[in-house]
Simulated assay, not measured.
Amino acid sequence: MKKKILAGFFLATLICGFAFAQDSNALEAGTGTITYQAENTNTSAEEEFSFLLMNYFKDKNPSLVQVTVNFFRERQLVTEDMQMPLVGFYAELFRDKNLKEKILSEIDSLNIKSVSNFFHSVAEFDVDKFYANPEANPNVNDMFWGSFFASGKTKYLDLIIDNAVKYHDEKVDLVKFLTGDSACWSLASNAQQYKEVREHLEKSRQKGEAVIDYILNTDPDEIRLNTIFFIQEQRKNGLWQ
């Protein structure tokens, strides 16, 4: 069985253990669907963690440290699908040395080695160097979203918009196509939820008016379906097997 293509992990779904995934076998059979896969049932700690991270850029909620600790005390691990958005979020957050030291100390007090190792790795990660020359990959969009939610800096939205504009019409490289379409989907979804995202998209039309109009005027569910349909057509033509 071929591996699933994971397209467009972004913070709004992944924090609570969901994956925007596409089953390549189903696509080959002509029945491709995008599914949400829940790893476990949401708890109040998970919901609080998700809400706080996705809105932190608005008010820099001081309960972040305790909410982070509560979440990982209950969760006990950092799953693979959570890693990229959390790296983006905490790498941006750790620019504040005092906050970094406080979070690391509290996380270490949990005595969960894998979680401590993850956070210390993020603390040592050179996010600016990585962002200076990011690879085309849908998971990298999740890092950009994480950094935006931590800071509200629109330069991270610009990186996602750039991926949407550059790769939305990609017809050769599947990973680049998924990078572009996951950028479109996540921008469309978050533009519905956050006026800051919508307003920045409207100001960025010069980057690619047709693509940005598509993002602003197309339902995120329709974007997902368009992604599936295009991949199906490519495979019918012998591509992206």
Rank of each mutant, 00 (worst) to 15 (best):
K97S: 15
M143N: 12
D126R: 05
N98M: 12
S147W: 05
D128E: 02
V122N: 05
N137E: 07
G146I: 02
Y131V: 08
P134F: 09
V122D: 03
N139K: 10
D128N: 00
E135A: 15
K102P: 13
W145C: 02
D96V: 02
E135P: 14
N139F: 07
D158V: 00
N137M: 09
P134I: 11
V127N: 02
E124R: 14
D158L: 01
L159M: 14
P138Y: 05
A123D: 05
S151F: 07
N133T: 10
I112W: 04
F148S: 01
K100I: 11
F118W: 00
F118I: 01
S114G: 15
N111L: 10
K155G: 00
F149D: 02
K97V: 14
L110F: 06
L159T: 09
N137W: 03
A123H: 03
A132Y: 07
K129A: 06
L157K: 02
K129T: 01
G152S: 03
S147E: 00
L157S: 05
F125Q: 00
H120F: 09
D142P: 11
L110R: 05
A132I: 07
N111Y: 12
F125A: 00
G146D: 02
K113I: 10
N137I: 06
K113S: 11
E101Y: 11
D128Y: 01
F125I: 00
K113N: 11
V140C: 00
L157P: 09
A136W: 07
V127L: 08
F125S: 00
T154P: 05
L159D: 11
S121I: 13
I112L: 13
A136E: 09
N139M: 11
G146T: 04
A132R: 08
Y156R: 01
W145D: 03
E101P: 11
I112G: 07
L110N: 07
S105Q: 13
I112R: 04
D142F: 12
S151N: 12
I107S: 06
T154C: 03
S147L: 01
L104K: 06
N98S: 13
L159V: 08
P134N: 12
A150R: 09
W145E: 03
G152H: 00
K102D: 14
K102T: 15
Y156T: 00
E106L: 14
S116H: 10
S114P: 15
K97R: 15
N137A: 11
N98H: 13
P138D: 04
F130A: 13
F125T: 02
D126P: 00
L110V: 07
L159W: 10
G152W: 03
F149T: 04
N117T: 08
R95D: 09
F148M: 02
Y156A: 01
L99F: 06
A136V: 07
I107P: 10
S105T: 14
